[in-house]
Design a protein around this nucleic acid. Structure first.
Lengths: 200, 200, 200, 200
DNA sequence: CATGAATGAGCTTTCATTCAT
DNA sequence: CATGAATGAAAGCTCATTCAT
């Protein structure tokens, strides 16, 4: 899942039809509430057609969640590596990227969050490892900011998790057709996030 | 589900065993991922025993979600009616109540959020009406604060939804055994919430 | 599966309906050629009705084969314990019992023989242990006869397996409505069996 | 499938790879327990490759069983036509041939026996006709022996079937690496067969 | 012949639910 | 309320088979 140069730009995701069907269906009624027959219908295939590409329904969920988080990580890397190297610039870039992602890939993000429990043990471990990788990017930036005396929080780890939760939560209520423009929202949430890590 | 006088105090929920079983099971693998047999086992009843109390699995979910939101509304009312009448006091009391609820009734809150989609149409409407009732309490306070010139936000409705989302999101990551004490967390999130509605 | 006092007498087997359905169906088209739907229809139950009594199709096969071999072993014990103790009387009784069993319980015997390969590893081991138990009864008698100088064969183990095979093979061609009476057949095969172990 | 001059000599069967795959697979888990994918893998072909040679899985079974019984009949003819013409010599030659065949072509013989039920009606008739042809060779020799006063059995037809069954049964237990040499086994079973038809 | 994609029909199994006792 | 037996509907998945390339 390579991503366009500009980590700020989002196009239609262009997912393979089975993953797209899974994204829609899992978002609507969840993994356990979705039947393979529905995935077949939504993807324009027959049921065995699904099984030609995936060995099980579980594998489809795994693939979907991995595609989602891989894009998130990729964009996070692009955002931070194209920003200035001081902690605040790094922090702003990463948070902006997180927010944009959860506004643009809402369903993928929500499915990944809510269906973590539906992953079988081995798959869950692999996914959580990827998610932790993403979380550690934020952790490091905050620690660097604290070390540099630019951020001021007594609990950097908790602050990091709170900022992440804030961004993830956006996916659950943001509506692209709402009154708040993307830029205003970004500005507002960025301010909140900066407050959490003690940027004055 | 009447609640102790003090809306700040939470005891074990003392749910009837079937609802308690449903709370645990739905939180672990979701409504569709839970079988009636599991509900029977977890509640120490037989399967027909379950159906002696409820007409369907759906009815159990409805009852559970209603019990949860009724407690939330009850506590919200107690919080606001025991606070001073100025907008900021009202706002602080309601947000504190929301936060405490989502820290103490995590699983119930998460199940209610994630299984809204599993409610059948009629039930969904009834539940959403209750939830909107809760949301309107916050809306009104914010509008009053803006009218009184004490809050400063150009989009009170969006701010209200953002504050609510912030509080709801707490349920998904707060751990009672974490390092941040409840009071510190409350203080921190209250500050964020006040920032969102433009309390300087 | 206890058996009437007289090990020579066979009545209708009186199997539970599911096992009876399995006996008929497996004999006709084999384990893999039989569907659970067919078992349901033959037993007058619905498909889930089958699964109320058995956890899987495999479990039905296991139960059936165990019922069959347990009756064989039970009858073998009755036959030998009610015969005189000299090797020839023991041998004649056991062979007669084997022959009668394979004439009266043809389908059960054939299914057990041909579907051994359809048992999953653990089940196969358990079944083979029972079958070996039966084979050892014959082995011991032949070894005793040889030791007593009453039987004359240089390869008692092979002779034992040949006798057993002879008896088992009867199930695959004997027809109760054939012209040869049971007694004549018994007499003839007993003579052959005695020849194999070197009873002059 | 023409056979070497000497009907006593058996080499590796040299079956086409699909038939060889079918022989192995059907012997291991039966016709219904074998998938076309397994046949493809075992034969080193692709699945469509299989269908390039055969119109259906059923056709593979038919071909295999026909190849097996054709070799049996061919060898039976060679055996009898190269033996002396008196009934006993004819009988001995045919029985020896039957025994050798079931010792050397065990899996083919067992598959043919156990999968007769898996043949579709038309194919079953064709196969049974071939098998009856083989059985009639034995019937005729026994009748001739009785007519000539050299054999002594009141039920030549039953005796014939019993002899055939005896030989067929060998395939289900004979192991080439056993202690009994082929010649000893032949001698022993020939004696039994002669006893069945009343050769003193 | 291989590869890859595809499918109608059907498989084993499970589900929520019910009823008699 | 429990036990035990039962079921219509549907679940996830597999089968033999086909077609385009």
């Amino acid at each position: 899942m390579t991503v366009a140069e500009d980590w700020r730009t989002y196009h239609e995701q262009g997912l393979p039809r089975i993953l797209n069907a899974a994204l829609e269906a899992f978002a609507e009624h969840g993994y356990h509430g979705t039947t393979t027959r529905e995935l077949a219908e939504r993807s324009g295939l027959s049921v065995p057609g699904i099984y030609h590409h995936y060995r099980s329904k579980q594998d489809i969920l795994v693939d979907l969640m991995m595609v989602v988080i891989d894009e998130l990580i990729e964009r996070s890397r692009l955002a931070t590596s194209s920003a200035a190297s001081d902690p605040r610039a790094q922090f702003d870039a990463l948070v902006e990227s997180l927010l944009r992602f959860h506004m643009s890939r809402q369903r993928g993000a929500m499915v990944s969050t809510s269906e973590l429990r539906s992953l079988e043990p081995g798959n869950r471990e692999r996914y959580v490892a990827r998610r932790d990788e993403q979380q550690r990017m934020l952790d490091k930036i905050i620690l660097a900011g604290v070390a540099a005396g630019e951020f001021d929080t007594p609990y950097p780890a908790d602050a990091s998790r709170a900022v992440a939760s804030l961004c993830v939560g956006v996916a659950s209520w943001y509506r692209p057709d709402g009154r708040l423009s993307v830029d205003v929202l970004l500005q507002r949430y960025l301010t909140i996030a900066e407050a959490i890590v003690g940027i004055r």
